[in-house]
Nucleic acid binder design. Structure first.
Length: 194
DNA sequence: CGTTTGATGCTCT
DNA sequence: GAGCATCAAACGG
């Protein structure tokens, strides 16, 4: 595999709408498992009706209001975890939801973690699926992904997108559903939905 | 195919 | 008590 350069914290200390497309094509490493980010959604903080931060800081959203480069992991529907990368400056609650990855390493571990996935293409093609595949749960909330930990990080491996990101509305929202803040690699088969 | 529904528990009102 | 940034199985055509 090509060299992996961990992303800088300052590269993430920008609005979610900027770092969402920036994160496409980057590599997310969790232990021996890794995948390339192919689909994300931007959540733009206090004034975004679709964001958990819309009604201000709560115990759950505290991490999102913190500094860039940490994971905001939340539990939903009584059984699923989803992971965001926190961006922006402290207090801005900028976040980017990781919605789909193209598996790169640790496929056997991912398959074991997702026994219900019939095909490899289904391992990480959804926000809760990728958390299951990578073993991400509430223990990862607040974890630093650009702090130099060799077992958990976001990196650039030199991959270049062949085309500009595809843009659409975000998925599964009841508020803010009209905003075109979802970004994905159109040609990648691991995207959750067309 | 596409659409509907059940699972399951946390978070905030 | 209502709703949830979801998933997989069941159902209908």
């Amino acid at each position: 595999m090509a060299d992996l350069e961990i992303l800088s914290r300052e590269s993430l200390a920008r609005p979610a709408l900027e770092i969402a497309p920036f994160l496409l094509g980057k590599v997310f490493v969790v232990g021996e498992r890794a995948g390339r980010i192919v689909e994300v959604e931007a959540y733009a903080g206090r004034h975004d009706p679709g964001s958990h931060a819309y009604r201000g800081m709560t115990p759950r959203t505290e991490v999102m209001f913190g500094s860039a480069g940490h994971l905001y992991v939340y539990f939903t529907y009584g059984m699923h975890f989803c992971a965001n990368v926190v961006g922006g400056e402290v207090g801005e609650a900028q976040a980017v939801l990781l919605r789909a990855l193209a598996p790169m390493q640790g496929l056997p571990e991912m398959r074991a973690a997702r026994p219900k996935a019939k095909r490899d293409i289904d391992l990480c093609n959804g926000p809760a699926k990728l958390c299951q595949a990578l073993g991400i749960d509430r223990a990862f909330n607040g974890a630093d992904v650009v702090g130099g930990d060799q077992r958990l990080f976001l990196a650039d491996d030199g991959f270049v997108l062949r085309d500009p990101p595809m843009v659409s509305t975000r998925i599964g929202l009841s508020a803010g559903a009209d905003l075109p803040w979802r970004f994905y690699i159109e040609t990648d088969p691991h995207v959750s939905r067309r």
